[in-house]
């Protein structure tokens, strides 16, 4: 054991290195978490509240706006995360080919979107996807669509727009993790598979994916957390509309706390729904990943 070698002074030095971070985490993370857990059992407006037991949880089940936000958030999650992870993996595998020409260019180009600020890209997407905007013009020019899509006014297309926007912004980010991990995969494995007659698809599915599994799991969980917390994009591109079709849980919490008469207890309860979802989904992803390896 490493700690057997640690002398007493070293032991104390160890604490001094991590103490500043621990103090800050205690104040700005642990304490708010406990506070919010306690708050979720309080009812009342503003800073006047009293113990309400499970009143907030009951209110959740009867709140159509909350159900709406929950369904929207889960829809984004289920549709967007697999698409993005898949695209990022394919791009990483394609770019990992050392003989590919313009590799640096492709890599930088695909990574570039995550350099943009969320506000910059929200603004760009809002203007590009206007009904008479450039995206509709291009799609009509290449005959993919006959008439303009009402991206910002139609509840269905507004969701699609948000998904396109997030995928554009984050695919390159995930790709970098896979590219980094692929550096550690021994190329001779692919040579051997090729000689054994494995097709490209088989190599991808039976070598690349299992080798990258820990990284895929990591990025999936990070993306799940990110999507469950979706706020900036919907607040800036669609403001949650039209008619709440892109309202997410985070946006609803924000509205409950800072737009309407603040009801801290209830918004804390909604935020614990997100915590619960993250916990359950991360756990499920771990279990699924473990089963696959058997």
């Amino acid at each position: 054991m490493a700690n057997a070698r640690l002398g007493r002074t070293e032991h104390i030095t160890g604490w001094t290195f991590i103490a500043p971070a621990l103090v800050l985490l205690g104040i700005f993370m642990l304490y708010p978490i406990l506070w919010s857990l306690w708050m979720s059992f309080q009812v009342g407006k503003g800073m006047n509240f009293n113990f309400g037991g499970f009143a907030n949880i009951v209110r959740l089940t009867k709140d159509p706006v909350f159900i709406r936000a929950l369904v929207n958030t889960l829809t984004f999650l289920v549709v967007q995360v697999p698409i993005m992870i898949g695209l990022a993996l394919l791009a990483a595998v394609a770019l990992n080919d050392p003989k590919l020409r313009f590799r640096g260019f492709f890599r930088t180009a695909i990574f570039l979107p995550c350099v943009t600020s969320l506000i910059a890209y929200s603004t760009l997407f809002k203007s590009m996807f206007a009904t008479d905007g450039v995206v509709n013009n291009m799609l009509m020019a290449v005959w993919i669509i006959q008439e303009p899509i009402h991206w910002l006014q139609d509840p269905f297309w507004a969701k699609v727009l948000i998904i396109i926007a997030i995928t554009w912004r984050w695919t390159g980010y995930n790709m970098v993790f896979y590219l980094a991990a692929l550096q550690n995969v021994d190329r001779s494995i692919y040579e051997a598979a090729r000689i054994d007659g494995a097709s490209g698809w088989h190599q991808f599915w039976y070598i690349t994916v299992p080798m990258l599994k820990p990284v895929i799991l990591f990025t999936t969980i990070i993306s799940t957390i990110g999507t469950l917390q979706l706020f900036d994009e919907v607040n800036n591109i669609t403001q949650g509309g039209p008619s709440d079709s892109t309202l997410t849980l985070s946006l609803y919490i924000y509205n409950l706390t800072f737009k309407f008469m603040p009801s801290f207890g209830y918004s804390a309860t909604v935020s614990w729904v997100i915590v619960l979802l993250v916990a359950v989904l991360s756990f499920a992803q771990f279990v699924i990943a473990r089963d696959r390896s058997k």
Partner: peptide, 24 residues
């Protein structure tokens, strides 16, 4: 042990901390 606890905290979304942090 502290490190493991921290990794667990990593999964707590910011939305959950927002309200108490603001009050604090």
């Amino acid at each position: 042990r502290i490190f493991t606890l921290m990794l667990l905290l990593l999964s707590i979304p910011f939305a959950a901390l927002m309200v108490p942090l603001f009050v604090m």
